[in-house]
Write a protein that binds this DNA or RNA. Structure first.
Lengths: 348, 348
DNA sequence: GGAAAGTATGACATAAACTGTCGCGGTCGA
DNA sequence: TCGACCGCGACAGTTTATGTCATACTTTCC
């Protein structure tokens, strides 16, 4: 066997990840151990992160970096990859910020010269707008996520994702917006991550309710520690079972029984609400007067008022009854800004 | 120079795309021509599509596929790339659907064995929610973009992007929502693409107003034809100059003079509006009564009413004056749904 | 606290591989 | 038809790669 072929084969073997011993390789390639050592020197000289491991169960393995053997990529494929990176960056979908930068640089460095010129400026051709905040569904906390917070968030997501991929448990403590104190560290089995409205959510199994995954917003995770190995059970979970905001449906079911809010509204308005990512999961029923009755769970008056106001004429808050008067007063005050009833009659 | 090094260097040179002659290479590496031929044989033997070109201006070059020489990618980099592809797919950002699929397959094929297994199922770990529609800023047309329409859209975007990268003109006809008939084919210089709220927009220069790029929504493009070569002018345009919805700012300036709508509102509410992707581009001034006065362009009563209703108590429509009465009547009708004024007083 | 199995490195003779130089035959473009 | 390129076989000369032996160090297992 050729030296070149042997070295390429070594590359291939090293790539597999398992550490290999010089003597084993020597047998395999029918050369002396010394030759293998010299080949390793050569590979290292080529810039490969070959790392020896001393001692009895030692061997050679690739360092933190794996090796990608020759592949042919046509320009469209390269553009697709770079485009994906640009998109990730624009939407701050960056579990591994360093990995993203490095991958982009390596990809660019390796492109045919003529294509590189244009692709280096790909970010000048392709722009992404951030997902706009939605006035009807505002966020509780500061909307201006600073650079540092974003970095911390992607650190959390990265670690969680790594754990999910390597099937190892994590212990995390969480700051729930509904509780005063931080939740204590609890051990979870990471299942996956979900990106929704400019934010990452961690999906995992808690021991108490196995099989019913819980979600944590990545920016509210306070602390993460490595946990034990994963149970071999629950092999095939698929986050797509949560998509379409199906998790929201379940949560709304619970809120609906705890804080039921009932609204009568015209059928046309109901159709619009049904298309909303949030109110689409409410319960819609035909009302007695030809209108639709929507039941949704909500504890805060202000949100309900905003919804009712948005719905406009023809919508009526049925429950909780004690908010009806308050809402009516508010609406009347809004109307009164335009003068008294008599004035209004003259105006129109 | 080593043989190995020389062969790797040859790889590098071939990658550049320009055909290279054996004699040139022989001079460059200070070896005989014969050696170069032998090296080429070796490379071909390694599976490289080296293709000779006979005749006077011949030379060696790579075949139909471009060649990507060895790169080291660590798992995080590979995951970042695959993540970008997954994101592209989830958000239907696919200028090159085939390239995307192929790149993913090639990337997976080349990963270390143990990582591949888990990453092949990466889509099961990582989910992306579509950008939710915004109730306050609804879309005119059908919100249910069918699979076929999405495909057509990515075809349009792909072709436009290719044209932008290769600096060649396009002729396109467009269906404007503001005009009854389709716009005729007009020649444009593609500048770039912008993704906003789940949609692609094409950015280009029209001859009539050079330097002031126009935007077209990709799903409203009716027809595209290749145009002539690009003018060498306007070399460095950058779509990022349009981001932050700056184009919207200019458009709103125009609408503001055409259909001015003035609203007085509490400072706290103004702060919230300023963060909105749309109303953030309105004109905000301090009013005489301590409230803020916002001026925005809008021709449709219903949109203005929705905004005023959303703003709630303390907000008042100042202009157009003729809508004040209508709005007041509407608000009063909403309030009256909860009983007469006397009843309301009893309730609260 | 060894023995075993691994890496790390130098020296040197030898075999293998690579290289240069011929030669001759194609192909293409001006 | 010429010139500049690829294609390839043969052969001698030289470089390079390899095997062997010797020695030192590190870790793990018993």
């Amino acid at each position: 066997m050729n030296r070149l072929d042997r070295i390429l084969a070594l590359l291939h073997l090293l790539r597999q990840g398992r550490p290999v011993s010089a003597s084993g390789l020597a047998q395999r390639f029918e050369v002396s151990v010394r030759t293998i050592y010299r080949d390793m020197e050569t590979l290292a000289g080529m810039g490969l992160p070959v790392e020896p491991e001393m001692g009895r169960r030692g061997g050679f393995r690739l360092g933190p970096g794996y090796f990608l053997p020759p592949v042919t990529l046509d320009p469209e494929e390269a553009v697709s990859l770079l485009l994906g990176l640009a998109l990730s960056r624009a939407l701050r979908v960056l579990p591994f910020p360093d990995g993203t930068d490095m991958a982009e640089r390596k990809l660019l460095a390796v492109l045919p010269e003529e294509t590189r010129g244009t692709l280096e400026r790909a970010s000048r051709f392709i722009g992404f707008e951030r997902v706009p905040p939605d006035l009807l569904h505002p966020e509780r906390d500061d909307p201006q996520a600073g650079g540092q917070a974003a970095e911390e968030e992607s650190r959390v997501v990265g670690r969680f994702l790594r754990a999910a991929l390597s099937r190892s448990r994590l212990r995390l403590s969480y700051r729930s917006p509904y509780r005063r104190e931080a939740e204590p560290l609890r051990e979870i089995e990471p299942r996956g991550i979900v990106w929704d409205r400019d934010r990452w959510y961690l999906v995992g199994d808690v021991e108490v309710r196995a099989g019913e995954p819980r979600m944590w917003r990545a920016d509210r995770v306070l602390e993460m520690k490595s946990g034990g190995g994963m149970h071999p059970t629950a092999a095939d979970f698929d986050v797509s079972s949560l998509l379409g905001r199906r998790w929201l449906g379940k949560a709304m079911e619970r809120w609906r029984t705890e804080n039921p809010v009932r609204v009568a509204l015209p059928a046309a308005r109901a159709d619009v609400l049904r298309r909303d990512w949030y109110y689409g999961h409410a319960l819609f029923e035909d009302g007695p007067d030809g209108r639709t009755v929507m039941t949704v769970g909500e504890g805060e008056y202000e949100r309900v008022a905003a919804l009712l106001r948005w719905l406009g004429p023809g919508a009526e808050l049925l429950e909780p009854a004690e908010w009806r008067g308050r809402l009516a007063g508010e609406l009347r005050r809004m109307a009164d800004a335009y003068g008294s009833r008599e004035q209004a009659a003259r105006d129109s």
